[in-house]
Design a protein around this nucleic acid. Structure first.
Length: 144
DNA sequence: GCCAACGTTGGC
DNA sequence: GCCAACGTTGGC
């Protein structure tokens, strides 16, 4: 079971919109980067991904579930890229900000920190557990 | 096939 | 609004 992180600018597609889309979910299109594409292709239905608000907010705000594996993206004229379908699963009790992630040495190797421009990223089980604990409000940074 | 130029992303 | 990082494009 792999874990992932998906980035979206809230002005383009926000967590509120994802929640409004409900259990049937929506397609996650627009990826035009080969590294990101490889991660999309590796996603399996049932796996979970962090939903991260980039630019505005700069925080992990919720969890989405992959509900359909990789298939062609109709908005890509070249036919090279594709997308998956995701549905909102649950919100975090409190957003986990980029600032909080950066300030914790145990999360220093997150792709979000090391390659901030990649829009689809893998997350390790350890990182996932940390983010979940921080997002639950169960602990503050460094006390998990 | 290399590399300079350019465009885009995203944090600050 | 600026700029650094990085991916992509296109000329050679």
């Amino acid at each position: 079971m792999a874990y992932w992180l998906l980035k979206s600018e809230p002005a383009t597609w926000s967590w509120a919109q994802q929640v409004a889309a409900g259990a049937q979910g929506t397609f996650w299109n627009g990826v035009r980067n080969h590294a990101a594409k490889l991660h999309l292709m590796a996603m399996k239905p049932g796996e979970e991904a962090l939903f991260y608000h980039s630019n505005e907010g700069k925080a992990v705000v919720g969890v989405v579930r992959i509900i359909r594996s990789f298939y062609p993206d109709p908005s890509d004229a070249s036919g090279k890229f594709g997308m998956v379908d995701v549905a909102a699963d649950r919100a975090l009790a409190q957003p986990v900000t980029l600032e909080a992630i950066k300030s914790d040495p145990r999360l220093a190797k997150m792709v979000l920190v090391t390659n901030s421009r990649l829009s689809v990223q893998p997350v390790t089980p350890e990182e996932w557990a940390m983010i979940m604990a921080m997002g639950a409000g169960a602990c503050t940074t460094q006390s998990c």
